[in-house]
Design a protein around this nucleic acid. Structure first.
Lengths: 165, 165
DNA sequence: TATTGTTATACTCTATAACTATA
DNA sequence: TATAGTTATAGAGTATAACAATA
């Protein structure tokens, strides 16, 4: 078991490191710390994984279903992977593939069972997050939300990072 | 290729979602957007990966070398994995295992070649980050750094998330 | 010809656990 | 007995590319 008491990837950053780099390292550390907890708990308590949870979460928000295509884009993952995860979830009766007007495609959606299972997980998941973020005030939350919104915008420009430069 | 133009995992979050959850989802989205770019560029331009880069980065900050043990803790990864990565890097002549007083252990450190290679990657890496974060002002950076510091502290308490509850 | 989705492949990262050699 | 590190295993995630069916 990793003794991950303190993630200090960036605590040793040298004084001359630029602000942007330190910011990125700190962002990465925070995310990984939380992600680690969430992944482990999803595995231990619900025998599932973050990508599976994310996929179901997308479906829960789109009761009409989503095409593989759309899932792929929203989860930022290539098509083949989505097929794999949907296959798993379908085998377990949590999602189903429903026919679509375009006969090449279909809409993936939660089954009744899947909806129930996801509801349970989502409640637990939210409780974990609230617990983990308990050290922050309402003000902190608002500030972070705003700044991260700006950061997100700075990141997701016109596909500027997809390929080149 | 994923059409990851806009990662809107959280843009559709429902109005009744709690702040903490929205904050976490946004944090995750931002990190993944950046991570995706960094991973791809590391692969395409330097034929390496983020974990390998992180490991070398730790060694660069500790010229005296680090024990496998310490690497494992700092990278938040179990021992077996560190062995694998160090093996790779050693095979490529980028790191070396040096004897330690404790004859069970040894210190892993960058070779001259490794130091040079890492320097090149680190410069490129920093340029990418600066580029990606260009949409933020100095003020934003400071604000985020401060808030993330608080968040990190809230996360990495006394191992409170390691096991239970 | 382009698009939707699947299949096949290969590689990396990861955790777990059994193992060795020192301490 | 405990610790440092390795090995073996198994599983998840990912990207790529070739492929089938439909548009």
């Amino acid at each position: 078991m990793p003794a991950c008491s303190a993630a200090d990837r960036e605590s040793a950053a040298r004084a001359d490191d630029h602000r942007a780099l330190r910011l990125w390292l700190r962002l990465l550390t925070c995310t990984q710390l939380i992600e680690r907890v969430v992944r482990r708990r999803l595995r231990e308590r619900f025998a599932t994984t973050l990508p599976r949870f994310d996929l179901m979460s997308q479906l829960e928000r789109n009761p009409g279903g989503l095409k593989m295509n759309e899932l792929s884009r929203r989860l930022m993952v290539t098509g083949g992977n989505v097929t794999g995860i949907v296959d798993q979830l379908a085998r377990e009766g949590l999602v189903e593939r429903a026919a679509d007007a375009d006969r090449r495609a279909f809409r993936v959606r939660l089954t009744r069972t899947g909806r129930r299972a996801f509801g349970e997980m989502a409640r637990a998941h939210e409780a974990w997050i609230v617990e983990i973020l308990a050290g922050l005030t309402q003000r902190d939350h608002d500030g972070l939300l705003a700044l991260l919104a700006k950061l997100k915008q700075s990141c997701s420009g016109p596909d500027q990072w997809s390929e080149p430069a």
